[in-house]
Amino acid sequence: MAPVTEPPAANTPTPDDATRRLFAGVDLDDFWDDSAYALAEYVGARPSDELVASVEAELGYRLPASYVALMRWHNGGTPRLTACPTPAEACLADDEVELTGIMGIGRDRRCSVAGEAGSRFWIEEWGYPPLGVYVADCPSAGHDMIAFDYRGCGPDGEPRVVHVDQERDYRVTVLAPDFVTFVRSLRPADDFGIA
C-alpha cells in the first residue's frame, strides 16, 4: 500500500486561467467545502502526469480532460453545491440527485477513483455495471453513484455523466453530456428542499 500523502491545505491556491475558462460560470473560488471529513476521505495531493496515466491504465479509461484539470487544482472533495437536477425520476426526488463527494485521481485517499472505495470497488463488490468510472458518491451509502459513462464513446472518448441507482436494478439516468456541464449544473441542496 502506498503511503498516505497529506492533502492540500484549506488555503488551496486559486485555479489557473485555463481552468477558470473551462468552468466559466462556476464560482471556483467557493466550489469546495474543505471539511475535516472531505480532507481525510477525498482530497489528495495534486496528481502528476505519471499518476494520471497509471490510474487511467488501471481503470482502462482516459479520464476527461476537464475532470483532470479540476483535480489538478483541487484533487477531489466535497463541493458546496451538491444537488444535480435530473431529467427523469432519480433516487432521492423526482427532480434531483444529491452527491456527497467527487473522487480525486489517485490511490491514497479512500474515496479516490483508484482508492479503497474507488471505481473498481463499486463494480467488483457492489455489482455496479462496468460502464466506465465511478467518480462521485451519494448520501445513500452506496445505493446510488455517479459515473463517467463510456458506453457511447469508447474508453478514449468524452463520457457523459450518469446516475446509477442500485435500488432500482442499477437504473442509469443521464445527468449531463460531459463533466463541465455536470459541474455547471450543480445547485444548493436547499433549492430542492433538501436540508
Rank of each mutant, 00 (worst) to 15 (best):
L92Y: 13
H163P: 04
A114M: 02
R168K: 10
A36M: 07
P13S: 06
T173F: 05
E98W: 10
R72D: 05
M1W: 11
G25Y: 04
G77F: 01
R110G: 07
I102K: 01
P155V: 11
C138S: 15
E58D: 15
M1P: 12
C153A: 12
P64I: 05
V68G: 03
V164W: 02
P79H: 05
F179Q: 05
V52G: 04
R46K: 15
A141M: 10
I123L: 00
D156H: 11
W126G: 01
V68H: 06
R72K: 12
A69D: 09
V162P: 08
G127Q: 07
F23H: 02
V172L: 08
R120F: 12
E56P: 07
D27Q: 09
P47C: 08
L99F: 09
S185R: 10
F192V: 05
V97T: 15
C138G: 12
A24E: 14
E50H: 07
T14Q: 13
A147N: 08
A45H: 14
V68W: 02
C153S: 10
L51Y: 05
L51Q: 13
F179M: 07
R107M: 09
P155M: 09
S54H: 04
T173M: 05
R21Q: 13
T173I: 15
A147D: 05
T5R: 15
E96P: 00
A24S: 15
L63R: 04
V113A: 04
T86W: 02
L28E: 06
Y150C: 00
R20E: 10
P47T: 08
F182S: 02
A2V: 14
G60H: 07
C111S: 00
P139M: 02
R80G: 02
F121G: 03
G152K: 15
P3T: 07
M145V: 06
D169G: 12
R21T: 13
T19S: 10
C153Y: 04
E89F: 05
W73Y: 15
D149W: 09
A53R: 13
C153W: 02
L70Y: 04
D30S: 14
P155F: 07
E124L: 14
Y37W: 11
R46F: 03
C153N: 05
R107F: 11
R187V: 01
V26I: 11
F23C: 08
G76S: 07
G25E: 06
H74V: 02
N11T: 13
A36K: 11
F31K: 01
C84M: 06
V4F: 11
H74Q: 13
P64H: 06
D27A: 06
